[in-house]
Design a protein around this nucleic acid. Sequence first.
DNA 1: CTATAACTTATTGTCTACAACTTCTCCCGA
DNA 2: TCGGGAGAAGTTGTAGACAATAAGTTATAG
Lengths: 225, 225
Amino acid sequence: MTLASEPTVKIEQLSLVELAVTKIKELLLAGIVKPGEPVREEWLTSRLGISRPPVREAMQVLVQQGLLERLPRRGVRAVSLSEADVWEIYSLRSVLDKFALELGVPVRDPALLEPMRTAVAQMRASSAAGDHPANVLANRNFHLALIALGGNKRLLQTYENLMNQMQLLMSVNLSRESVEHQEVGAERHEALLAAIESGDLDQALAALAAHGELRFLSTAPVQQA
Amino acid sequence: MTLASEPTVKIEQLSLVELAVTKIKELLLAGIVKPGEPVREEWLTSRLGISRPPVREAMQVLVQQGLLERLPRRGVRAVSLSEADVWEIYSLRSVLDKFALELGVPVRDPALLEPMRTAVAQMRASSAAGDHPANVLANRNFHLALIALGGNKRLLQTYENLMNQMQLLMSVNLSRESVEHQEVGAERHEALLAAIESGDLDQALAALAAHGELRFLSTAPVQQA
DNA sequence: CTATAACTTATTGTCTACAACTTCTCCCGA
DNA sequence: TCGGGAGAAGTTGTAGACAATAAGTTATAG
């Protein structure tokens, strides 16, 4: 240890549960585990190299976040969204987007706009390059930054959960429509950002309304049974 | 066992985790464990008569629901809400109430109104009797029934979590103001229900806006630091 | 040949035990 | 007398093993 700069302090002190949550979430959102597919505990222990207790705790977390589903004595599986579910998520997200704008526009701290600008740039680039995964990520970052404008932690957490559930669907649905949807979105998001930057709430709300997602849905809004 | 009506089938097949979640939630919402107070695993195991793993899994669930808080290597404690937190919860709840009305008014299934009528009756009775806990419960039932009008499961779950967090505060704050708040609320809730029954969305939204809670807050809305 | 019942297997649910870390206290030195 | 460090106690984090239940399979009877 001749170099004093060597960090003897270990910064990473996250528990195996947090690690497992992150890893399992990756498996789900990347589509490695597909919707409806069972997720066995033992399989995760061997894949993550940890024992079952932290895996089980992580699964409880992901059930709460709406990514996993428990069948009482039959284990756990990745949730498979019905069209009614998608409609639930979309409409709720829409309301929360609107709420975030009402809370956050005009923007108090200009620094909050930076992540949105970055996301728009990413969106433009990925859209031009036809990089769909990058586009999804950029879209995610944009909306999370938008929600962050509101400065409401609970809003942000709820929104992130909903967005993860949506991505659960997108990971498997790489059809032409969803790609087209993202490409169109690039311009719309730019317009929305411009409206937000202008500080005019009404204009921003109008841009949000026009930004309309849900184009990948095959049918009209469905009321659940 | 001469009576054949004796149920040999065990209907209750809920896991110890679910049981622990319910029990711990009761401890928190009843104010037996007060906000900010540490909740030790070993204490729960002896109190609930189960071992640590299910207790730990239950705690993960309650952390996700915003009732418990983890300090990385120092255990878990009941969340203590700041005024900024209360404002977060209130404003978000307000938006979700409004959303539920937009989704659910006019009411499709008249049966959905029944729980609301029951809740209003409970509210009136408990208010007259000065039974504060019963009033809190009735208020809870009313709002959950209102949210159920929307028919959005995710909305309902999110709202229930927020409401539990609020009750976390009320269990300790039995000051005069909060009682007064509930008493006033009885009439307002009646008016809101009447507006909903009329099927006029605008009227219902107006009644919701007038129904105004948050009277127990000592100060004006606070932006978190 | 089909259907039912018993058995086998695999997975989840739960418990006990061990390891690591944090904190409090006590002792020693300045 | 006050500050710092070492030790001890208690709590959380993790692992491995046991128990119970559900599903799949096979064999047997009709």
